[in-house]
Design a protein around this nucleic acid. Structure first.
Lengths: 231, 231
DNA sequence: TCAAAAGTGTTGCTGCTACACCCATGC
DNA sequence: GCATGGGTGTAGCAGCAACACTTTTGA
């Protein structure tokens, strides 16, 4: 394969940088936002936790690599994922030079393959009570959290963390967990109602209360008519 | 150097991915937002333009690489720069597999080294009239523009594109050029005045009008007291 | 004296926040 | 019948957008 003349690039020395993706896998369970981590069972860094990651294959784009890594661990295929940021300090991994492109995934805990997850010794942790993490993985999480907070306020991404049918109290708890603050129930519902992209079903979910809460469904078509999403 | 056991990573094949940084160098001149591009003088892709880029050295972090590339081209050392996004489709560069981490730089046109820039055959283009670009560089620019629009509304980054002393009409034109829309003069000034981080000097700049406009200076200390920047 | 840009306040409206009570049901 | 969580409306306030005239001075 012929290489182009690179007028704008310095002489290309032999690079020894390995490219990896690290996935921030978010789930929502019992009112808590959680993150899936794996424990390192060997030295060095034994017993510390890390994000799920993997090297990028030669014929594979970054987005593909992230989806592959996620799928290998959880068995999930069609997951909402977006690139967050790339971490590239020369010594961020003190054992070898690895560049890491981070991806944020919002998964539905009930959907994934428990056996697969268990076989990798992965564990869920509530976002406000994470263990020690290797390298700069703490920074990655902070970066992804900032992005997630912005995203759920400006777009309908939060629904990826809920089942197809969900109640408004559930949705509100999700927002509260991500934003880390309480939200006024009436104001929250007012905004949702004004944007008018949720469909109220006839069914109720009685698992959380005696009265039961109506189930809703996110409607893609109705959402496309919404100009300014804002919560 | 010993390698750690990578429980969470697939067997590491020999990777053939080269890591580059591409810089989006923004400048502001005569009321226009401009971007610095280099022309390719050789096949393939002759006569098309590209962003300024370079390969990342082995001992060098990404941020360092971006600053080095910028400095090699413009001679500028202390420049406001931030990472934008990483482009990693397998065939984004059809000649070899290159991963590109993009950086956005806000430079003061009057400061840089013209000879250096000329020797690289670099040219400034107004952002609304760019030439054909190679590969996915157009996407990179769109991505960086979206980020820049968000940034100048929520933080004091725009001042990096202006000299230390500037007038309010200049500042407003800068915002209008970046946001691509007209701004009401009185509302714009009201917001700036409310946040109170600009210092009005006694001097006027008479180059743009007979009456002359007062010069202002951005005050870092006063800015640190501002809780919610918003324009 | 006139052309051209700089500078300055008010008003109406919209959207946000704050807030309290009734409802349905299982136990 | 009572405890628990679900559901609903209003009023005050703040922040935003819309808007027009006076000032200065060089030519």
């Amino acid at each position: 394969m012929q290489k182009p003349f690179q007028i704008n690039r310095a002489y290309k020395e032999v690079q020894q940088i390995t490219v990896a993706v690290d996935c921030l896998i978010f789930g929502f369970n019992e009112g808590k936002l959680e993150l899936l981590l794996v424990r390192r069972g060997f030295e060095p860094e034994r017993d510390r936790f890390s994000l799920i990651g993997g090297f990028v294959h030669n014929e594979e784009g970054l987005d593909e690599a992230a989806h592959r890594v996620l799928s290998e661990l959880t068995g999930l295929e069609d997951v909402y994922m977006e690139q967050v940021r790339t971490f590239g300090k020369a010594n961020r991994d003190p054992y070898e030079r690895v560049l890491s492109v981070t991806y944020s995934a919002l998964v539905l805990k009930e959907n994934y393959n428990d056996e697969l997850v268990n076989s990798y010794k992965a564990e869920w942790f509530p976002i406000d009570n994470l263990p020690e993490l290797i390298f700069d993985h703490k920074d990655m999480i902070e970066s992804a959290m900032r992005r997630l907070r912005r995203r759920i306020k400006t777009g309908p991404v939060g629904f990826n963390l809920l089942p197809e049918k969900f109640t408004l109290p559930q949705l509100q708890k999700l927002y509260e967990a991500i934003l880390g603050e309480e939200i006024d129930k009436r104001n929250f519902r007012k905004k949702l109602h004004a944007m008018d992209f949720l469909i109220r079903l006839e069914e109720k979910d009685k698992s959380e209360s005696k009265k039961g809460a109506f189930l809703y469904r996110f409607d893609e078509d109705k959402y496309n008519g919404v100009k300014n999403f804002s919560i």
